[in-house]
Design a protein around this nucleic acid. Structure first.
Lengths: 74, 74
DNA sequence: GCTTGTCGTAAAGTATGCTTTACATACCGG
DNA sequence: CCGGTATGTAAAGCATACTTTACGACAAGC
């Protein structure tokens, strides 16, 4: 739910990268980048870390913080 | 490779939590926590984000930064 | 009209995160 | 001795990330 919305596209466009070039940078296929931007699935931790490194930001800046959550938390 | 070594146990013990209690906090099974600490696999992004939230640290503090790059990768 | 570049998306296959169930160890208190 | 707590680990099964291959659409330029 929360994670299917991310700021990947925003970061990528601001960096002036195509999906293809970003994909090469982080060593996945172009479709993987596209699917993540489209919210079709959330990346693995490894990929998320690589993306954060490319953009010089925290993983939490790209994905996350949404899920405050479920009441019975603690 | 790099990600199989993480600081989860360190953070957990410092927080005075058992594997069981931490598991409940982040809503996974105890075995999942154990396996991550043992380096048997790396967590999903969702779980990593929840863990970071529990410990009040960045995902990168728990997992990461290791993989500077490939060198002989290909 | 053709090609080239960027994007959107789908299907089948492989890898792996996570679950449940289960058992084994070790420490501790009684 | 026994019971409870905390940990280590394994197997089978389900869900999903990621791959390759493939096709469709839109714009730009020649």
């Amino acid at each position: 739910m929360g994670l299917s919305m991310n700021r990947l596209r925003e970061f990528r466009e601001q960096a002036g990268l195509t999906q293809d070039r970003l994909a090469v940078c982080v060593k996945v296929s172009r479709q993987t980048i596209n699917s993540i931007e489209a919210g079709r699935y959330v990346p693995s931790l490894e990929l998320a870390l690589r993306l954060g490194r490319v953009f010089g930001c925290r993983v939490e800046d790209l994905f996350g913080i949404p899920e405050v959550d479920d009441a019975g938390k603690a």
